[in-house]
């Protein structure tokens, strides 16, 4: 299948990316080229192959549920675009 302009717009929206109207044809072309490359996977039969999520097939480690990090709110918020009284500010969401 091939992605058209509306597909690119939909994907950009899902990815929360503003892209210029004028650059959509170029994105459509490049994404289609990449998907054509990816399509080569379909040449192999993987019906009986188990998916590989981790190279060493490791499992998630468990740890005791104890506090290991200290409160660094001021440090972390010092690099935020906009904060007030310890919270992050964004445009109003609830009327």
């Amino acid at each position: 299948m091939s992605l058209d302009k509306s597909d690119v717009e939909k994907i950009a929206h899902l990815a929360r990316l503003a892209i210029d109207e004028s650059s959509i044809p170029a994105y459509a072309r490049d994404l289609n080229n990449i998907l054509n490359l990816v399509e080569q996977m379909s040449a192999v039969d993987t019906e009986t192959v188990s998916p590989m999520a981790h190279p060493l097939d490791a499992h998630q480690r468990l740890r005791e549920d104890v506090i290991s990090e200290t409160d660094q709110r001021e440090l972390f918020q010092s690099i935020a675009p906009k904060t007030d009284a310890g919270v992050y500010l964004v445009p109003q969401v609830i009327e």
Binding site: A12, A15, L31, I34
Partner: peptide
């Protein structure tokens, strides 16, 4: 952006 979009599409 290209890679984010390919990934978003593949996971959609």
């Amino acid at each position: 952006k290209r890679r984010i979009m390919i990934g978003t599409y593949a996971l959609s």
